[in-house]
Amino acid sequence: MDQERLYALLAREMAGELTAEEANTLQQLLQQYPDASYIREVFAQNWVPAGKQYGPSQVQQLLEKHQLRLQAASLPEETPVTDIAPPRKVWKLYTAIAASLLVLVSLGAWFLRQRPAQKPAPLAQLVTAKRMRSQILLPDGSRVWLNAGSKLDYPEQFAPHSPREVHLEGEAFFIVAADAERPFRVYTKAFRVHVLGTSFNVRAYPLEDSAVASLVQGAVEVILNNDSKQVVALRPNEKLTIPVHPVTTEATTAAPIPTMAALQKSKLTLVQDSIIPETAWVQNKLAFKHLELEKVVVMLEEWYGVKIDFRNNNKRKLYFTGVFETESLEQVLNAMENTQSFTWEKDNTGKIWIR
């Protein structure tokens, strides 16, 4: 193997037996394995071999012993160099090389253990308030749209040869730059999404009773609660709805992991023309299809930055379909009120009441 060859050449270099051809090979291997350059320097600077702690005098004794082994293995200057060295000289030479190789390998292992771990890249955060939507280009070229009342944590730079990881609270639409060596991962409190290059939507607000992953293009895997045994693969135009326990201000026990039977996998459907409710917000359109009024209310609160509540809880389970773009909150409520299924009013504080 190349690494074994590298250590053998380093040992021969220390023994003074390196040929010109081997020197060229050594330089090529040092470029291929840059860590070995550090090992070479560390050894040359009288560092301690792996696995032991020595004082200055003990370090000096070890180095002197190692130098004596090398000298014993070297041929005297006045001795003519022949093609075949005497057996005892050969044995000494390769014993010294083996000893050097052992020290180098041990020192390499020690060096790798002692090298400080790579610090994670500083995190950046994008937060959108209610009524606001934002768009950002991540360091890898992936593009993210962040819906109202959402938060995205991401590194200022993605590490090379490592997964690209972001953390989401709320809703975001992703168009991920393809990179087979660095899979893209979106973490939420309910699940995480694994992807190589695709476009998808994730909705995971802390106050909602479900989280949804919707795939537009490509392929993704949804891993529930970071449990690698619960994996759901999505194909284009599919979504996965996961029941969760909404976060409240009261003390609660840990939410149970949803079972596979509790999941709802379904197709993305158009509400009109080419509008998909799950991603319409990216086009600044408010769209919902056969959705309970209590969930429509949550969307209206985020979209318009208001508070809405029910005076009549029986109205919560009414279902509505609609697409709105430039309409005001009053126009949206009036349009739904025209179905004669409920009425609404605004109190002195500006809060909306459904009755």
Rank of each mutant, 00 (worst) to 15 (best):
L168D: 09
V231A: 09
L207P: 00
F174K: 04
I175P: 00
N201L: 06
V247E: 14
F191L: 09
A219R: 10
P243C: 04
I242Q: 09
V193K: 04
L196N: 10
N201F: 09
A178G: 04
A178N: 11
V231S: 09
V212T: 15
K229E: 15
P236C: 01
T188Y: 12
E171Y: 02
D209P: 01
N237H: 10
G197N: 02
V222S: 05
E171I: 02
A190S: 12
V202P: 03
E221L: 08
A211Y: 06
N225H: 15
P243W: 04
G218R: 02
A233W: 03
V231E: 11
E169G: 14
A211M: 04
E221Q: 14
L168Y: 08
S214D: 03
V166F: 09
A177I: 06
V195I: 05
V247L: 15
H194M: 13
F200S: 00
I223Q: 12
P246K: 05
L196D: 09
L196V: 14
S210M: 07
Q230W: 05
L207S: 10
S199K: 06
V232A: 08
T198E: 05
I223S: 07
R192N: 14
S228W: 12
V176F: 05
L224Q: 09
A213D: 02
H245A: 13
H245Y: 12
Y205P: 01
S199L: 03
V166C: 08
R182F: 12
R185I: 15
A178R: 13
E169P: 02
F174T: 07
E221A: 14
L234G: 03
G218M: 03
F184R: 06
S214T: 08
L234Y: 09
R192V: 10
K229Q: 15
L224G: 06
A190D: 08
L240R: 01
K229A: 15
P206C: 11
A180D: 07
V186R: 10
G197T: 02
Q230E: 08
Q230H: 12
Q217L: 01
E171D: 04
R185C: 13
P236S: 00
T198L: 04
V222R: 04
L207N: 11
R203W: 10
H167F: 15
S214R: 01
G170M: 08
V244K: 11
V193Q: 07
P206L: 13
L234F: 07
F184S: 06
L234V: 05
E169H: 10
D209L: 03
V212F: 11
R203I: 03
A190C: 04
P246R: 05
S228T: 15
R182V: 06
L234E: 05
S199C: 04
V220Y: 03
R203L: 13
F200W: 01
I242F: 08
H194T: 13
V212I: 15
N226T: 15
N201E: 10
T241P: 00
S228Y: 14
T198P: 01
R182W: 10
T188L: 12
A177K: 12
I175N: 13
N237W: 09
L240E: 03
R192G: 09
V186T: 11
S199V: 02
V176W: 07
V186P: 05
V193H: 07
F173Y: 13
R185F: 13
V166H: 09
L234N: 05
E181L: 14
L207G: 07
